[in-house]
């Protein structure tokens, strides 16, 4: 383990990382959010979904630095006396849970289909890639609307809506890499060795097509957080009982023009921050891991 850490610290990736301000900022932001969703709930004052902890008297309190603000609620409270900061911490957990789960689901499905399409080619390839084309022409909002109208709201429907579009990028990337790798002689060597196709795919092709996916996956989490926020803002996202950052914006939106701006602006800023951080990191990884740019 320490040997691995030493190798990483001596690697070119780490060397370049230390000289890249935006990569450092990006990873700090991502680390900050990682901390927030893991230990955040124990740091903030209240659980905004435990009705017993809410004080209706404290409703619509402005942030602490404004007139009437209370040091108990740094970023103010909403109409039910919920601490906005606590809501953001809990909301980030839901937003990032959805973003990460949908990314993992997309990655698994997309990689599998991309491997099959690229390795076997022919009719299977045509079928998979045509489905991918069709998927791309359906916006996720439309898919979500369709699912919601048929089955009602729910986190799993949001996930399905995101994954149904998200797998395509993996399938295309992996198919391209697979086509390139299977041309190489080590795949022929594996055939000459008598390996069955399943083993060739798992042992030889898969490990060699994964690197470009790291970049796709990183940036996709940010994209998914944004799409989920749009869906929730439109009312076809997560249910009221699981308020993500997007839903927090929607909840505060009704009173935004009465001067109670902090209820939706702060969650909005946090969405911006997380997507910004993820994209900074993703850009760095793309520059580092893409051999063609080197």
């Amino acid at each position: 383990m320490t040997a691995l850490a030493q190798r990483f610290l001596a690697s070119e990736l780490f060397h370049n990382y230390r000289r890249n301000a935006s990569a450092i900022i990006g990873s700090l932001i991502v680390l900050f959010f990682a901390g927030m969703i893991t230990i955040g709930p124990w740091v903030v004052a209240q659980d905004p979904y435990d009705v017993a902890q809410l004080e209706l008297l404290d409703s619509f309190k402005p942030p602490v630095w404004l007139e009437g603000g209370s040091p108990q609620y740094w970023l103010g409270t909403d109409g039910q006396g919920r601490d906005v900061l606590a809501s953001i911490v809990y909301g980030s957990r839901i937003s990032l849970f959805i973003g990460l789960t949908a990314m993992i689901g997309s990655c698994l499905i997309g990689t599998t289909l991309g491997l099959l399409a690229g390795f076997y080619g022919g009719r299977l390839d045509s079928v998979i890639m045509r489905i991918a084309d069709i998927q791309l022409s359906f916006p996720s909002v439309l898919t979500a609307l369709f699912l919601m109208s048929a089955f009602g709201t729910g986190v799993e429907k949001v996930l399905i809506a995101l994954i149904s579009v998200g797998w395509v990028v993996y399938a295309r990337t992996v198919r391209g890499s697979t086509l390139r790798e299977t041309q190489k002689e080590y795949i022929q060597a594996a055939r000459v060795s008598g390996l069955p196709n399943a083993k060739i795919i798992l042992r030889h092709v898969l490990p060699n097509v994964l690197t470009p996916l790291i970049v796709v996956a990183t940036i996709q989490v940010g994209t998914f957080v944004l799409i989920e926020a749009s869906l929730s803002f439109l009312g076809v996202g997560v249910p009221i009982t699981k308020p993500s950052l997007g839903l927090l914006i929607k909840n505060g939106f009704d009173v935004l023009f009465s001067g109670l701006w902090w209820i939706s602006v702060f969650p909005g800023l946090f969405i911006m921050l997380i997507v910004f951080g993820i994209n900074l990191l993703g850009d760095f990884l793309r520059d580092e891991l893409n051999p063609r740019l080197k």
């Binding site: 002689e185 080590y186 022929q188 490990p207």
Partner: peptide, 18 residues
């Protein structure tokens, strides 16, 4: 396969890098 094996042209592409 045990009786017949092959040596390839490209020393870079003929070994799995992983």
């Amino acid at each position: 396969r045990k009786k017949m094996q092959m040596i390839f042209q490209d020393p870079y592409a003929s070994l799995n890098p992983r």
